[in-house]
Computed example of a mutant assay.
Amino acid sequence: MKSLCIGKGSYTRRHRGFTLVELLVVIAIIGVLIALLLPAVQQAREAARRTQCVNNLKNIGLALHNYHDTFQKLPYLGFDNWNGDMISVFGRLLPFVEQPAMYDTLDFNVRANGGNNRLYRTTPLDIYSCPSEQVTLGETTTDLNWSHQRYSYAVCVGNTNYRQENANNWDGLWTYNNGGSAFQMGTKIHGLGSITDGTSNTVMVSEVPMNQNTSGWQGMYAAGIYASGAGFTGYLTPNTKASVDGGRRCWNPDDYLQKIPCHNNGDNWGTATFAAFSMHPGGVNASNFDGSVSFVPETIDIWAWRARTSTQGGEVIGQ
């Protein structure tokens, strides 16, 4: 048998690696692909967070309706002679959001930061927190005597201010007292029947911003465990950076994920005009009194928004 012999002139295959230029080109291409993909991933995540936020608002709306069916009125907003430290609407809703054990610990005869209310003040609840926000515990101390959770949602208290006063010319625009809130404030007892503008045309709950500072007082905005932190008004449009009222302490703009200007004019919470505010690009989610939830663009006409946040104004709501 003859053997096959490979001589000197035979072909030898050599393996050649990538050059530096080729590697750099590949890395550049991968970088471009990641840059193109990242916004899509972020948008998908935000869409999922917004969906969860909508679900939270729907469940809060359902809880408010169940409360109304049980007591034939909407929850007491919490003001007792305009005492803003009382337990808020959200504390009164606890049995209707699957938190009966926490509700049983509440002492409604003292301020929210007194008595047996520590569990209520310090426990974060997913239903009250939009996933686009960062949940924080305000005034964090070793003994937790003054600590308080911040919430992402607040009930609508009309289109003027907390005290539902005539708010003419605070920002050069005229508005009016239109019946204000459908929630019980002081001795006023209201229910769904008081909403003569129609439950599908009137905003019940929307979003508010969480203060990210864990130390110090930092004001009532979104401190939803308290009565004076559980409401917003329609005097200003959603996601506004304006500040015209005297109902807040001065805060650091950096305390919020989106900067809000500092405005210090004392502690007269009755004049507060806390606006609806969210971390969602372009607007806020809002639940109407019929339980429906919609996205309200921050570019909404101020008069259209004030019409939607009144209960008895008789305005014609544009489509």
Rank of each mutant, 00 (worst) to 15 (best):
W82D: 06
G61P: 00
T271M: 05
M279A: 10
V110R: 09
S152E: 03
H15T: 08
D171H: 03
G186K: 08
D301W: 02
I30Q: 10
N145Y: 10
G216D: 09
G193H: 14
N201H: 14
T311H: 02
R50Y: 02
F232P: 01
A40V: 09
S228A: 14
K58S: 07
N166D: 14
Q99C: 03
F71T: 03
V135M: 11
N113V: 07
S287C: 13
G114H: 09
V203W: 01
N83S: 07
A223C: 15
N252V: 00
Q52E: 12
Q149N: 09
M1I: 10
R49G: 08
T233W: 03
R306W: 07
Q134Y: 13
L106I: 09
T70N: 05
D197E: 06
N168W: 06
V316D: 05
G191E: 00
G216E: 08
S215E: 11
D290I: 06
S310N: 13
V296Q: 00
M279F: 07
L4K: 07
E133I: 01
N264I: 02
I300T: 05
T233K: 07
W174R: 12
G282Q: 04
V135W: 09
Y256P: 10
G246A: 12
W170H: 00
Y221P: 08
M102D: 08
T214F: 01
G115R: 01
T299M: 02
N59C: 00
L94F: 02
P95A: 02
A276W: 00
G17V: 10
S215Y: 06
V205T: 01
A40Q: 14
V54D: 05
N145R: 14
G31I: 12
L119G: 08
E46G: 06
D104V: 02
A44K: 15
N59W: 01
T214K: 12
S292A: 04
T122C: 10
N265H: 11
R308G: 00
T122V: 15
S3P: 15
I27G: 06
L37I: 15
V205Q: 00
L24R: 09
K58T: 04
W170L: 14
D245Q: 03
G313M: 00
A101N: 12
D254E: 07
S132P: 05
F277S: 12
L20M: 10
Y176N: 13
N265A: 11
K73M: 07
N81K: 11
